[in-house]
Measured scan of single mutants.
Amino acid sequence: MQIFVKTLTGKTITSEVEPSDTIENVKAKIQDKEGIPPDQQRLIFAGKQLEDGRTLSDYNIQKESTLHLVLR
């Protein structure tokens, strides 16, 4: 499924993921596309910071959901 990751600069990254993918996994995909190390990434969805060990389905993230990427 496709999800969108919006950066603070307003850029939107499209990523191909599975509901069973972990947040860590998603951060790795963002690193592949943007070159941002996962340890600098914080992903936010519905006002919550997403934890690395959890999966997209844990957070009820569905296709075409938009996550927000904040850098630390």
Results as ranks from 00 to 15, higher is better:
55 T>M: 10
40 Q>W: 11
40 Q>V: 10
6 K>C: 13
49 Q>N: 12
33 K>Q: 13
36 I>N: 03
10 G>T: 02
13 I>R: 01
56 L>I: 10
33 K>M: 13
63 K>Q: 12
42 R>C: 15
38 P>S: 14
39 D>T: 10
3 I>K: 00
62 Q>I: 13
6 K>N: 06
15 S>D: 04
30 I>Q: 00
63 K>M: 10
8 L>A: 13
16 E>I: 14
42 R>W: 11
29 K>V: 07
27 K>C: 02
48 K>Y: 09
26 V>I: 12
54 R>C: 11
25 N>W: 10
7 T>P: 04
61 I>T: 01
2 Q>C: 10
23 I>L: 04
44 I>P: 00
43 L>D: 01
8 L>W: 15
43 L>C: 01
42 R>I: 15
45 F>P: 01
15 S>Y: 15
47 G>L: 03
30 I>K: 00
44 I>W: 15
41 Q>C: 09
3 I>E: 02
54 R>I: 06
31 Q>I: 06
65 S>A: 12
20 S>I: 06
6 K>Q: 10
64 E>T: 05
36 I>L: 06
32 D>V: 13
3 I>P: 00
64 E>C: 11
33 K>W: 08
28 A>L: 14
67 L>W: 00
10 G>Y: 03
30 I>W: 01
58 D>S: 13
47 G>N: 06
1 M>T: 03
54 R>W: 10
15 S>L: 15
23 I>C: 01
51 E>D: 09
8 L>Y: 13
43 L>W: 01
63 K>V: 07
71 L>D: 07
53 G>R: 09
27 K>D: 00
26 V>L: 14
14 T>W: 08
29 K>C: 04
10 G>F: 03
13 I>N: 02
16 E>C: 14
54 R>Y: 13
1 M>E: 03
34 E>S: 14
12 T>W: 10
63 K>A: 15
12 T>A: 04
39 D>K: 10
63 K>R: 12
41 Q>A: 06
5 V>I: 15
69 L>F: 03
24 E>N: 08
4 F>R: 07
22 T>Q: 04
12 T>C: 12
58 D>A: 04
70 V>R: 10
47 G>V: 02
1 M>C: 04
55 T>A: 06
51 E>C: 10
2 Q>N: 11
8 L>R: 11
6 K>D: 04
57 S>Q: 12
30 I>M: 03
6 K>E: 08
16 E>K: 09
1 M>F: 15
56 L>R: 00
8 L>K: 10
42 R>Y: 13
18 E>Q: 13
62 Q>A: 10
15 S>N: 08
46 A>W: 10
54 R>K: 13
26 V>R: 01
14 T>D: 04
38 P>M: 15
34 E>N: 09
55 T>K: 10
13 I>F: 12
53 G>D: 11
41 Q>L: 11
44 I>E: 08
26 V>A: 02
22 T>G: 03
18 E>I: 12
6 K>V: 14
58 D>R: 01
52 D>H: 06
29 K>E: 04
41 Q>G: 05
34 E>V: 15
56 L>N: 01
35 G>V: 03
6 K>W: 05
10 G>P: 02
13 I>H: 04
32 D>F: 12
21 D>G: 03
49 Q>S: 10
27 K>H: 02
23 I>M: 03
2 Q>I: 15
25 N>G: 09
53 G>Q: 11
52 D>G: 05
49 Q>V: 15
22 T>Y: 08
26 V>E: 01
